[in-house]
Every structure is written in C-alpha cells, then in structure tokens.
Amino acid sequence: MRIRALAALFLLVVTLPIGAAATAAPALSLPRPTGPYAVGTTWLHLTDTARADPWRPDVRRELMVSLWYPARPGRGAPAPYTTAAVSSRIVAAEGLPLPPDVLTTVSTNARRDLPVRPPAGKGWPLVVLSPGFSPSRESLTGLAEDLASRGYVVAGVDHPYEARGVEFPDGRVAECLACELDDVMPQVVRGRAADVSFLLDRLTGARPAWRGARYLDRHRIAVVGHSIGGASAAHLLTTDRRVDAAADLDGTLFVPVVTNRPLLLVGADRPADASWVRDWPGLSEWKRWLTVAGTGHMSFTDRPVLGAQLGLDPGAVPAERQLLITRTYVAAFLDVHLGKRDQPQLDGPSPAFPEVTRTR
C-alpha cells in the first residue's frame, strides 16, 4: 500500500465540500475527560545521540513528546493543541479550505506545567501513545487527557519525518520525508519501537528527562497506538521487556507478532485485517479482538470530533461517542493489565456499548 494513501485517511475527516472557500472555522474543542483528576501537561525534546535518524542519516534521532499526567488543581495556562507550523502543514498537505492555523484553536482540557499529583501507591502507571502515519502526536489528545484524568501518566510521542510536521523548540520543522516512499512500513514499525524504547530509557532511567518521573511506577508500562502506531505498539511486546501490555487501534501488523504478553486489537467496521488473522494463533497470553460497528479508520482519534464541529457528518456513530468508546475500552484494558482491576466489558457484550463486539 502506498504511504500517501494512508496519509490521506488522516485528512479525509476534516475535508470540507469541494469548492468551499477558506473561512474562519467554528470553535473547536475536545470533550472533557471522564476521570476524577485534574490534568497537567508539558512537552519534552529528546535526542538519541546513539542513533542516526532512519530518514535523515546525517542527523541524530530527535523526538518531541507530550506528557499528560494527574495534576494538583491549579490555574496553569491552557495547553495548546499543536503549533501553527504543524497545523499549517496538515492543512496544506491536501489543500484544505481552512485557515492554516485552525488546529491551534482547539480548546483542550489540560493545563501547562501544573505540579504532578503524588500517587497514593507506588506510582502512576505509564502509557506511551504512538499516532498513525502522517498525523502528529496531538491526534490522540482526547484519549491522552482522559487516561491522565483516570490516573495514568501518558507520553504521546512524535516520530519525525513520518508526520506532516513535527516542530522542534528552535523552530525547525521536520517534514514527512517517509510520506513519499513506498514499501517502508516494516521499517516504520521497527523504527518507532526503537523510538519508544529510547523514550522509556529517558523516563525510567537513573537520570530521567522529566522531573515528574519520580512519580512513575516503572513496573507498570503499556503502549497504545493508532494505525501504524498500533503495529509498533504490538511489535514492542517482542522487543522490550519493560512493556507489560499493548493495544493496537486499527493498525495492520506489518511485522509479525508472537508474544505471551497481553495484546488488545480494536478494529473498525470492515472485513478482518489479514495480518490479525495471521498472528492471532501466536498470541499465547491474554488477547482480545474487538470490532466497533459504524466506525472507520480515524474513529479512534480526535478527528471525528473536530470534523463534526466543522460541520461534517461523522457517520453512523456520533463523533463524541466514537471518542467515548475508544476512551472506555482502552482504559478498561489498561485497568486490567496495569491497574489489576477487573473489567468485564472486555469479555463480552456490554449493554452500554452495543456497537462493540468481541470478534475473537
């Protein structure tokens, strides 16, 4: 599959009718988180001096990371959804009739640099989020804020040169070099797994890059990803023993997965992914395959919510409910495997969510 085709999926949900003029967009916002905690956020810029960038071998691999975490309530500044540079590249990639900075106007629920709320137990579990191909880390903000409000520290990681734009603190912007290439998905999966392992080094090592890392439980770590990010999350179960569990949100497994650690597969409403069928027998521990009726590939991101606010029809399932389903089932999975709390909706039909069926 050509990578440009995957990139187009991201932009589809915010495409306005052909010929529409660029006008001021309506107010955009994310639904409030459902957990009991206030949410703080901060950004990290990390450089892996030991590894060349896979798309630009002349430079070291750099990452931009957003951290969302349970916070002490405070009056911190509202967190930006993304930067103007990133927003403009997303809008320009397909010539969308929207203001270039439209994504900077999204109202979020986190506050910048609030103090971390001390956990009642050993520490907050850590969840790493990896976005799909061509979106940036902000595309999973609605999920990240909700998980943080429920008692997880969440690290959303950008993978430079695999997104339409990743802006570094000095103003440099990494364009999507990989978007113009064919047949690189296995390379993307393996490279992203290396990115996440490096991030774990920097958050859980002896000299962590984030001062709030002292509140982490280093023995409770999961990775969740959308699309190719989900494939890399699953791959990490085979490459990094620190990862206790992984969830793949509608991502083809371009690299085969054989593991005895928990894996959740959540698919959109379409025929079964052949790679999931292929790898299912090799998943020897806890495993679930859920299908969500009335959804598409981007239903597990913020895009249906923002698209609906721009006047688009979200399809059979209301936009905010699509996000609610994602939040609920990802949190249930994490509660079982990081929080050690039973969540029976993962085992069978739930009257509250008739759209979700257990495929296997």
Rank of each mutant, 00 (worst) to 15 (best):
G76M: 01
V336H: 09
C176L: 05
D101N: 12
E167D: 11
R75F: 15
R214N: 02
P26T: 02
A319L: 05
Y152T: 04
V188E: 11
V39A: 00
D183M: 08
R72S: 12
V224M: 06
G19M: 10
R2A: 15
D48G: 08
S88F: 09
G339D: 07
D58A: 15
A319N: 03
L236H: 07
T359E: 15
A316V: 08
R190F: 11
A25R: 01
D48F: 09
Y81K: 00
P131G: 04
A274M: 10
R72Y: 10
A206M: 02
A209V: 03
P354T: 04
R137I: 03
S134P: 05
R270T: 12
P80H: 03
R4P: 13
T238H: 08
R72E: 15
G171I: 12
P119T: 05
L312M: 10
P354A: 03
G230S: 06
A7Y: 09
A79P: 06
A24E: 15
L237H: 12
P318W: 07
L114A: 10
R288P: 12
P97T: 03
G230P: 05
A233W: 12
G230Q: 02
L147F: 09
V59S: 05
D113A: 14
G156T: 11
Y215M: 05
R341I: 11
G165F: 11
T104K: 01
R358W: 14
A84F: 12
T359F: 15
V13D: 14
P160K: 01
V184F: 10
P262L: 09
L30I: 06
A178H: 04
Q322C: 08
A209D: 01
P99C: 03
P351N: 06
P115Y: 08
F353P: 11
P208N: 01
A178Q: 07
T15N: 11
L9Q: 13
M1K: 10
L44F: 02
A27K: 06
H45V: 06
L11C: 15
A272Q: 13
Q345G: 13
S107Y: 13
E175M: 11
W55K: 00
V128I: 06
V65C: 00
G296W: 13
P318M: 05
Q187S: 15
I325P: 04
W289E: 11
C179K: 01
P354M: 05
D53F: 10
T326F: 11
V116A: 09
P314T: 00
D170H: 07
P125H: 02
L312C: 07
V277N: 10
T252W: 14
L103K: 00
P97I: 02
D113M: 04
A234V: 07
V127G: 01
T15Y: 08
L63Q: 03
H45T: 11
A268R: 13
P314N: 01
V305D: 02
D217F: 01
T291S: 14
T34M: 09
E145L: 02
T259S: 14
E320M: 07
P31Y: 03
W124L: 00
P80W: 08
L334S: 05
L310G: 03
S299C: 04
A352C: 12
Y69Q: 02
A24R: 10
W55P: 02
M64F: 09
P349M: 05
R327Y: 07
S139T: 15
R111I: 08
D313Y: 10
E285Q: 14
V127Q: 00
G267E: 15
M64Q: 12
V330H: 03
G132V: 02
V255F: 11
G307I: 02
G315Y: 04
T47H: 03
V184D: 04
L96F: 13
E285H: 15
